[in-house]
């Protein structure tokens, strides 16, 4: 039995296989409508996350399975003080697989140590969010047709944004990927990403402050939201929240086949006028997220498409 706790739990070859399955699901959704008949996913969300929870639930329903779970700690037995390990032992009796979102880092790992069903980390604090990374990889591969030899711009909050850290960790495993890290000085990537991942791996990267200058070189622009909840000081948040706003004028500087991704929700960092640009891929990214979660559920449950 396997779990998915960290985006690097899967090798490059395993990710390739998973993305191939997700691509097949995209092109033949009805062919997968009953592969998980009788199976149940438990969505254990100790903090609210409408998008990720609904994506898991839609994925399981698309596969013919059913869902159960809770959407906040207040409506779970955690409110009574139950430990993660006790909760997962109980859930293991009810469901075949589970997706866990928890505000505390490492909670899904604790669950996996006591679980008799596969555990998927659906986000643990500022630590990991592997299914977002799989979604990002599928989106890039579907749009560009490759995961190597490209220039990826990451823009906004590169300090606290766990999706950014996970995506960098995942993409450095492919040859010829260059990074342009666009952020204000206060929100640069953490030292361990710069030193232990990028420099240690001899990966070409540049840290810049100006989005306009970076635009012409990019194949992918990954925008992020400056997250209010990560700041202790409201003044700092207000000063930094609108430091980058992608609009039509900036899109004119980009390549014809560059694509814009965003883990969503967005606030002001992408103007709504960009939504109609064919290069705006963030809503397609949401759809890819469902396909890749379907592929992941099938992989962890070891079920296959009927011949």
């Amino acid at each position: 039995m396997r779990h998915l706790l960290n985006p690097l739990d899967f090798s490059v070859e395993e990710i390739e296989k998973l993305l191939d399955l997700a691509a097949d699901i995209e092109h033949d959704l009805p062919g997968y409508a009953h592969v998980c008949d009788g199976k149940k996913i438990a969505t254990l969300f100790y903090e609210p996350s409408t998008r990720t929870r609904l994506s898991f639930e839609a994925a399981m329903l698309n596969l013919g399975g059913s869902v159960l779970g809770f959407s906040s700690a207040a409506s779970s037995s955690a409110a009574k003080g139950e430990s993660v390990s006790d909760t997962i032992r109980m859930i293991s009796c009810y469901a075949d697989i589970c997706a866990m979102r928890h505000p505390k880092e490492g909670a899904p790992l604790v669950a996996s140590l006591h679980s008799s069903i596969p555990v998927i980390n659906a986000g643990d604090g500022g630590h990991q969010h592997p299914t977002q990374t799989l979604t990002d990889l599928m989106t890039i591969r579907s749009l560009l047709g490759r995961l190597d030899n490209m220039t990826v711009g990451l823009c906004g909050d590169l300090k606290f944004g766990r999706t950014v850290h996970s995506l960098i960790n995942a993409l450095v495993r492919y040859p010829g990927v260059k990074f342009v890290l666009i952020s204000p000085p206060e929100l640069r990537v953490p030292e361990y990403i710069r030193e232990d991942v990028l420099k240690a791996g001899n990966v070409e990267f540049a840290e810049v402050g100006n989005l306009d200058d970076a635009m012409p070189d990019l194949d992918i622009l990954y925008m992020t939201r400056v997250q209010r909840e990560r700041f202790f000081n409201e003044e700092d948040y207000i000063r930094l929240k609108d430091c980058y706003i992608l609009d039509k004028a900036k899109m004119k500087l980009a390549k014809e086949h560059m694509f814009v991704l965003h883990p969503l929700p967005r606030v002001n960092e992408i103007s709504v006028e960009v939504d109609s640009d064919p290069r705006a891929a963030y809503f397609r990214q949401v759809q890819y997220g469902v396909y890749v979660r379907m592929a992941l559920i099938m992989t962890l449950l070891e079920v296959e498409k009927p011949c």
Binding site: S85, P103, K104, A107
Partner: peptide, 20 residues
């Protein structure tokens, strides 16, 4: 780390791995 699961579940063993 105040965001670590060990900060709220006191019975968990504190396990560390040598990373470098």
């Amino acid at each position: 780390n105040p965001r670590c699961i060990t900060s709220i579940e006191q019975e968990l063993p504190h396990v560390f791995f040598l990373s470098d």
